[in-house]
């Protein structure tokens, strides 16, 4: 059985084999021996080195903790669409979304304005802290969908950009 996972632009392919002591998973050159010792807790062996890893899979995303380091892997869904909105939103460099639901404190650009990549675009408040959202690319502000003081979710972009033709 072949599985695929994605992390940013890295893709990792694994092959799963059931063995009496648990599972053998081949990844690249390595074969990991993995057994689930309690829900979410996995004992892993690689070339004699043991490590306890925690992992939960939910909605086409796998959450893994290795010694305090958190890794989230995307799992391509059956219909080929990436289920996570993070992945879906990340493709679009011409749309600027709120990092999380919050309130628009201040828009720093106007429609029609030319902007540079990484330029501060909008300040969004969430959890009582102000977060500055920067432009993902250089371009022109095509449309602004919110006003200062409005509530914003992560579904509708705050700002839409017109990107220069490459």
């Amino acid at each position: 059985m072949i599985n695929q996972f994605a992390y940013n632009d890295e893709t990792v392919e694994t092959r799963l084999k059931t063995v009496p002591s648990g599972f053998e998973v081949s990844v690249g050159e390595n074969i990991y021996l993995v057994s689930e010792i309690a829900p979410g807790k996995f004992q892993t062996h690689l070339n004699g080195a043991r490590k306890l890893v925690c992992c939960v899979v939910k909605e086409n995303r796998s959450y893994i903790d290795i010694d305090g380091m958190l890794i989230e892997l995307d799992i391509p869904s059956d219909d080929g669409n990436m289920a996570s909105s993070a992945a879906a939103h990340a493709i679009a460099k011409d749309k600027i979304f709120a990092p999380m639901p919050g309130t628009i404190v201040k828009l720093l650009v106007k429609e029609g304005e030319k902007v540079e990549a990484k330029q501060p675009m909008v300040i969004v408040e969430a959890m009582k802290m102000e977060n500055q959202v920067n432009s993902p690319a250089s371009g022109t502000v095509k449309k602004i969908n919110f006003k200062d003081g409005e509530q914003v979710g992560t579904e509708i972009p705050i700002i839409e950009l017109e990107l220069p033709v490459p």
Partner: peptide
């Protein structure tokens, strides 16, 4: 910055089993 790439293999290996178990 945190380089998680060296840990991706292990993460994917465990995820594979977590998916199979679930």
């Amino acid at each position: 910055t945190v380089d998680v790439v060296p840990a991706l293999e292990l993460a994917a290996a465990v995820s594979t089993v977590a998916m199979a178990q679930g």
